[in-house]
Design a protein around this nucleic acid. Structure first.
Length: 688
DNA sequence: ACGGCTGATACT
DNA sequence: TAGTATCAG
């Protein structure tokens, strides 16, 4: 799982910056009277005082630890102030901490490539800045060294006779004459400044490790906490690593580390040195083997990614013990809450960062009562992500259903009412991934036009059609179609479904090969109708199935069947004749009018497997972190301020959609990737 | 199955 | 690819 990569240069300057008990600091800033007091942040106060997720340093002195219960902490430290994590929609809501993390990143991203490693950790590549500093001060950096920098810890520095400060000062000035260490010294000065700046602007303290690679920086950022920094000179690496317990190494805290201990008798990093690269590869695979061999020697070529924003968003909750969810309505209720939070975060990512997520994934954990096979895991399911809280809710519930059906298995009995609770859900989470920036800048716009002119391929056309279908069918979001409100734990047996599927609505077995694709895009060759119908039928089937097998059905919305008016709406949007299922309109490049923004994305992002995508991503990478962030921050949702240059160059329909996209949560991009819609879970299986 | 919630990454 | 597993804090 770790990937070996050689060092690109042995003289990089990498810093790892780690906020000190971050959540606690956030709470203490909010409530200054907590400063200086033993404090911990706790979630779900109800049960045994809640679980601690962050502990301040004053409280640590009492032996209070993370993952303790609030009650335990109180025993050890009666004075402790427990602050609850904010709760929204019945679950812990970490947004205040995420936002505080962003504050920090925006400051840290100023001086070099910056990677958001987690909500409270950042890597910086300060190589260039350090080199610059060095060349600008050929006669030494004496005048740049301040009191704070002198407080740095330098690994391996002999603190023999005089006091530590003097030694450190000396080190800063001499560095044994080693160029690499001179660079580190400059890096350390920069980090000092950054940390002071963070403190000034946010009131948060942080600690840091400064070294030649990420591994060493990370390893040392926590050595002297809080509010201190540690430098790893090249010459001290070996002695530093040798006695280090193997499990302290990042990635070795789990099974792999255990395996090293028990199978190879490796307890310290030094113990690893005696194994040849080949022997490690033999046991752990090529990549991991080399990686292990390298890290034992302090070699880690991993680059600092220039990324200030998370790659995914998720919202989840566990339902331990008695709280396990045993009915579909309760699952749906909680899914709705989770989806609402997710949607909100997606929305603000869109507004603040102009990014769009493409994939929605549902994870659940469950157990079966009654069943031998209770070890089986609940499968994760994903589909194209459609924006809008309601849509995300609908889709995740469908995904859940798809997962549940699989989880329960074919043999399941359909005895209604009898085996009421066959399953129980102990955890639910929804997440959004594959997040891309909305293409902007003339380069990609130009490419869009370029693309549009040249590529009227059949494949693309079908993409468009599918897009229409998918978008409209579930345009129920506008209140038009349906939302399932279900009850009762039973799911009809798969056997049953398989039969009904042969009853005409679905392609027969020998046709299924075609059908999968046809569902996702009208087959142009023979102008075969379908997709929308199929999808609709499928959903109705699903609904009926569940309602009929459930103990109670709930309908809290208006109309479970399509009404006349939303039928028309769908027709209009989809270009399909609902009665015949046939295509009403031709989707040539002149006439298609619907999800233009989707085509835009497709042609600019997905369609181009090589050049276009690369071009746009590289564009972003070229920006310094600072630029990226500043740009994000300056985006302020008034549509007419949206990079007018860019917007005005877009085709009118796209302009309109982008504006709508950015302005109205309700009316958002209908982007569905071919073949990735939730519908495919409900299609007849290929071979049986 | 009370170590919750969130995120990244690599393998298949 | 979608889905799984591992790791981290």
């Amino acid at each position: 799982m770790p990937v070996a990569k050689p060092e690109s240069s042995d003289a990089r300057v990498i810093a790892h910056i780690d906020m000190d008990c971050f959540y606690v600091q956030v709470e203490q800033r909010k409530q200054p009277n907590l400063r200086g007091q033993p404090t911990a942040v706790v979630q779900y106060n109800s049960w045994k005082g809640g679980g601690l997720i962050a502990v301040g340093y004053e409280a640590r002195k009492f032996g209070v630890k993370r993952s303790m219960r609030g009650d335990e902490a109180k025993k050890i430290c009666p004075e402790i102030r427990l602050v609850q994590v904010p709760v929204a929609r019945g679950k812990a809501d970490l947004s205040v901490y995420r936002n505080a993390g962003s504050e920090v990143i925006s400051i840290l991203s100023g001086k070099g490539r910056c990677e958001r490693a987690s909500i409270d950790e950042v890597y910086l590549d300060l190589t260039e800045a350090a080199e610059t500093m060095l060349t600008e001060h050929p006669n030494g950096i004496l005048d740049l060294i301040n009191e704070e920098a002198i407080k740095s810890h330098v690994l391996g520095l002999h603190l023999d006779d005089h006091n530590a400060r003097d030694c450190v000062r000396e080190w800063f000035l001499m560095n044994n004459g080693d160029h690499r260490d001179k660079l580190l010294a400059c890096g350390a000065l920069i980090v000092t400044e950054l940390r002071l700046e963070v403190l000034k602007q946010t009131e948060f303290t942080c600690s840091a490790g400064i070294a030649h690679n990420k591994m060493l920086a990370k390893l040392t950022s926590g050595m002297h906490k809080p509010a201190q920094q540690t430098i790893v000179p090249f010459s001290s690496v070996k002695k530093f690593l040798e006695p280090l317990p193997i499990k302290k190494m990042k990635q070795l805290g789990g099974k792999l580390g255990t395996s090293l201990e028990t199978e190879l008798g490796v307890n310290t990093v030094g113990d690893l040195l005696q194994f040849s690269e080949e022997s490690l590869q033999e046991r752990y695979g090529r990549n991991t083997g080399t990686w292990l061999w390298n890290i034992a020697r302090g070699i880690c070529g991993e680059e600092v990614e220039g990324r200030l924003l998370p790659k995914s968003h998720g919202s989840g909750k566990t339902f331990p013990g008695r709280q396990a969810l045993k009915t579909l309505p309760s699952v749906q209720k909680w899914l709705n809450e989770l989806c609402e939070e997710l949607s909100e975060r997606l929305q603000s990512d869109l507004e603040q960062n102009k990014r769009i997520a493409h994939t929605l994934t549902l994870h659940a954990s469950a157990y079966k009562l009654n069943d031998s096979e209770s070890l089986k895991k609940f499968p994760s399911k994903s589909c194209a992500l459609r924006y809008g809280s309601t849509k995300i809710q609908e889709d995740s519930f469908s995904l859940f259903h798809a997962g549940l059906r699989e989880y329960i298995g074919v043999y399941n009995v359909k005895t209604k009412g009898s085996n009421q609770h066959e399953w129980a859900i102990t955890g639910l989470s929804v997440s959004a991934s594959k997040i891309v920036e909305i293409p902007s800048g003339t380069n990609s716009i130009t490419k869009y036009f370029h693309n549009k002119d040249q590529s009227g391929t059949a494949r693309k056309e079908s993409d468009y059609v599918f897009t229409n279908d998918a978008a409209s069918s579930s345009s129920s979001g506008h209140g038009s179609f349906k939302q399932l409100h279900l009850a009762g734990p039973e799911i009809a047996p798969c056997e049953d479904e398989a039969k009904t599927q042969q009853d005409g609505l679905y392609p027969r077995e020998n046709e299924t090969e075609v059908s999968k694709d046809s569902v996702f895009g009208t087959n142009f060759a023979d102008n075969q109708p379908l997709s929308f119908f199929q999808m609709k039928e499928q959903k109705e089937r699903l609904e009926e199935e569940i309602l009929s097998s459930s103990s109670l059905g709930v309908q809290s919305w208006v109309g479970s069947k399509p009404t006349q008016s939303n039928m028309e709406f769908v027709e209009e949007v989809s270009g399909l004749d609902m009665k015949s299922g046939k295509q009403k309109r031709k989707f040539d490049s002149e006439k298609r009018t619907t999800p233009s923004i989707l085509r835009f994305f497709h042609s600019n992002v997905e369609a181009s497997s090589s050049s276009d995508v690369q071009a746009t991503t590289d564009e972003c990478k070229c920006d310094s972190g600072e630029d990226v962030l500043r740009r994000s921050n300056s985006w302020n949702y008034k549509s007419d301020e949206i990079d007018p240059v860019v917007l005005n160059e877009l085709p009118p329909e796209i302009q309109a959609e982008v504006r709508a996209l950015l302005l109205q949560p309700q009316n958002q991009a209908k982007t569905v990737k071919r073949g990735s819609s939730i519908v495919h879970y409900f299609l007849p299986k290929k071979n049986s």
